[in-house]
Design a protein around this nucleic acid. Structure first.
Lengths: 220, 220, 220, 220
DNA sequence: CATGAATGAGTGTTCATTCAT
DNA sequence: AATGAATGAACACTCATTCAT
């Protein structure tokens, strides 16, 4: 009753947050459809009906998780995009942000990756637009770099943003699915992955013909 | 027997296939959880119970779709990997295969993208392994190219395969989500996308420094 | 709370008991397999789903009826066995208990006789053991009487307990089946039956001959 | 195809009997409600639909089993009742018949004991009457013995028949339920059981008082 | 006779949501 | 704000029965 960080004894308004946190955990574990409201209530150690005091229905819980967490994420990306550093540094930061999110806050990433969009897939254009925001941020960053001659301008910036995010995304997904760990070398740490993705994105995989020591200084 | 493509009047053993085809369509439209067995039966114009004559339960329908369709897909990739052409040509073919599948057989790709793996997420290692097969094919192709000096060998081939597929995958997903169409230029045809992905993958996006006419001849 | 025996207006926790009472009635009437959960709900005038609030499934309702009612019964027999009276008096009491149960609480006896054990017949050794308890009670009472010279000790006490209970059991069953009423004399009251069973059990059916070498000529 | 006693290659009309025999086995194993027509068809190695050539429906299979087997049984009892031997010998024969049926043809006895009557319990007076036939046979035999002064006439013959059959019946049931085997002495052979039941029925369990060394010479 | 595909009504169970307290 | 009993629509799955061949 007095423990400051128990699930009990929170301030009255914290219950909402408690439900949200619990829901993320349970959704990550059982999936949205596999989660019953009672699961959330039991895990949060609150009464069944209380969930409905704070949320209209199950869907709204998912919506809220999505909006709040994705919003924080987009803001973080925004800060990176606008921080004035070189393109490569910013791409690297974004890659690291995405990958570290997948590790440190893996639970809501799972929920994001697996549950969001599926529920009412095409029915909520608002949600689709919010997701697209990430791509637009990257794309505009790329376009800017193209205009300054920093990047090839024969490749479409929008597509570029998709491919960049896509490369990261599948790494995240694979980790979630435990696909990546199959490699001989065991775990690959995510700093290395971030560097590789950005490197590959910027310098390509083809052996730099005659001159290109593009990634040479990075060594094996 | 007379109307070759009507749902009616098929040969007796075609019913199983009819159910499968219908299920793909309905799953694509409503999602796995949103689909009732009765939806499939009604759409296929067969009796409810017949579905259970051919499949143990709803899950088995999804499994079958996955196994059969993904199997065909993997075989097609296998043929490309082994066709003896240059790496770039093969990557291009694979990219085109993936992208065209997403257009021409978009329904089952939707089912693949949205429903598979997510249903019993981590519970079926067999399914995970089958999916991993695609990555292993690409990775071994890349590794071979690295050994022959065709590709940089300072980048991990496994990660490379993930990034390549990831770039394509998100494009596919985006199309399914109607995200890509948001661009000003409307639709981007998938040949261009395939070329861009492979180009970016092989040559990178960074403007070839001093000399780098890497993608120069491709110019707009 | 005001109408003490109406189905309505009970205290909140009585709902469980209400379901149980209703289930006994409906099972007795239609049999376990013939009873739908909706029948119970309708008869109890409660919502369908409430049944599942109190019981895991249909089978658990039957189990609960069995355990609770049979338990009460066994306790009553225990009290008689231990009450210190003469053997004959105790047997008579047990017979009367069994017979009166079949009349006054005929519904759950029907359920016991017809449904229990048969549902998952040999699968629940626990249930079998509980039923066996009745036989063991009687048998130990008989054995004790044999040791004290009150009963013949050339007859097996276990078998004796079976035969005693069996004689009563079939009378009960027959009444349930309305077999017994077929006699010319109409109904035989159960006091008479109890006396007859005990008499026959203790003294046999053979005319007590002059000196009673009744079974003497039967030799080994 | 040519094996004379395989399930295959029977004369065409034997199929009916094959279905019946199989049904007894499967009903005994899974119970009437737990048995699907397909179980019978698979076990009998015949086509699903063929069952419906020979029997109107599932119920009719059970009815047929009951009528045919019970009929044979009643005839056997009839022959014993009328064979002119002493009462005790006839009772012993009947007891042995019942007990050996429960051992040698235990499957249909199980079906009889557990399934018959339950299905449409009180709805078929015909079936009830056929079962009552056994009791009436015994009762008339007892009544005759009473009239000839062989048996006490202060006990009701009808009740006597119930008690006699009941004693045997519960032994049979107990064996089916594996209750009886719990005794220390392991299995009790059914000849002994038959003798004990008849002995108890005729002479009672009470130690023959003063004079009656009724069973005294029978010693342990 | 024989086959087994086809039918569809029936029902146990789940669970999101409401509501009285 | 908090509780958890109460509600009932929804749906997967079963299986006896029919029927075309």
């Amino acid at each position: 009753m007095s423990q400051p960080d128990g699930n009990d004894s929170r301030g009255p308004a914290d219950k909402r947050q408690l439900i949200l946190d619990t829901a993320i955990r349970v959704f990550a574990e059982k999936g949205y459809h596999g989660t019953r409201i009672s699961d959330i209530a039991r895990d949060a150690e609150i009464a069944y009906g209380l969930v409905y005091h704070y949320f209209k229905n199950k869907e709204e819980i998912l919506d809220t998780i999505f909006l709040e967490r994705w919003g924080e994420f987009i803001e973080a990306v925004d800060r990176i995009v606008a921080d004035g550093r070189a393109l490569e540094a910013r791409l690297l930061s974004i890659a690291e942000l995405i990958l570290s999110a997948s590790r440190e806050r893996s639970e809501w990433v799972k929920v994001l990756v697996f549950e969001i969009q599926r529920t009412q897939r095409f029915s909520d254009p608002g949600r689709v637009r919010v997701v697209g925001q990430l791509f637009r941020q990257i794309a505009s960053m790329l376009r800017e770099a193209q205009e300054q001659g920093e990047l090839r301008d024969d490749l479409d910036a929008d597509l570029g943003s998709y491919i960049f995010i896509g490369g990261l995304d599948i790494v995240v997904t694979s980790r979630v699915l435990d696909l990546l760990a199959v490699e001989g070398a065991g775990e690959v740490d995510h700093d290395t992955i971030a560097k590789t993705v950005v490197d590959l994105f910027l310098n390509g995989m083809r052996r730099a013909a005659a001159s290109g020591p593009a990634a040479g200084d990075q060594g094996p």
